[in-house]
Design a protein around this nucleic acid. Structure first.
Length: 198
DNA sequence: GGCCAGGACACCA
DNA sequence: TGGTGTCATGGC
């Protein structure tokens, strides 16, 4: 039975540092966390580039943009109608947080419609530097593949990793990125067929 | 031309 | 509580 930490070291030796989320601002990370939902990151980059070129990649920029224009700008990221609405809701929450000089709590991020556990934890970890381990579909397959852990829900997995590893933000960031690299590299295919939806 | 990507939510039983 | 449909673009 491997340990979470030994598998991390193994992944790092195989794939190397991933240098994830090379964003130019904290807000860009927040935007990316929402737009990347069930979407290829390359498409997210197109959407973020559009927002930048239009001078809208800021809380004020987003909030003053009409929904129709916002939809057009983020269209490459897919699900653009609902993401436009949800991006504004999240931006409002982000503006509240900026105005009070204390980081967001997980609970208040989860109150935002369109922000689920993975997105909330991504924001906490990558944007605010708080030690929340991000769980995604790859992570569960990774655990099953290596007989590392089997839980029921999202938080089971999160607590497992957080209690198995040193509490380190750089470690959490790199580990999640490495698991995604593992999944893209073919790890997912060893776990059988993935969900297919029309 | 089908498959899938760094999900979340509404709805139903 | 768990399963299913919906949202949608773009790369391969």
């Amino acid at each position: 039975m491997p340990s979470a930490l030994s598998l991390y070291r193994l992944l790092l030796s195989v794939y190397g540092p991933q240098h994830w989320w090379p964003a130019e601002s904290q807000f860009e990370v927040v935007v990316g966390a929402l737009l990347t939902q069930n979407t290829n990151w390359r498409n997210v980059e197109k959407a973020i580039t559009n927002l930048k070129c239009a001078g809208r990649l800021s809380p004020v920029g987003i909030l003053k943009t009409r929904n129709a224009e916002l939809e057009t700008l983020i269209r490459p990221s897919g699900f653009y109608r609902q993401k436009a609405v949800r991006l504004k809701l999240l931006t409002r929450k982000y503006s509240e947080i900026l105005g009070r000089d204390s980081p967001p709590t997980r609970e208040e991020l989860l109150e935002v419609k369109g922000v689920g556990k993975e997105t909330a934890d991504s924001i906490l970890l990558y944007a605010f530097g708080l030690p929340y381990f991000v769980i995604d579909a790859y992570t569960k397959r990774f655990c099953a593949h290596h007989h590392l852990y089997e839980g029921k829900g999202y938080d089971d997995y999160r607590v497992f990793f957080e209690s198995s590893l040193p509490q380190s933000v750089p470690l959490y960031r790199e580990y999640h990125a490495l698991i995604v690299a593992w999944g893209k590299g073919g790890g997912k295919r060893s776990e059988g067929k993935q969900k297919v939806k029309g």
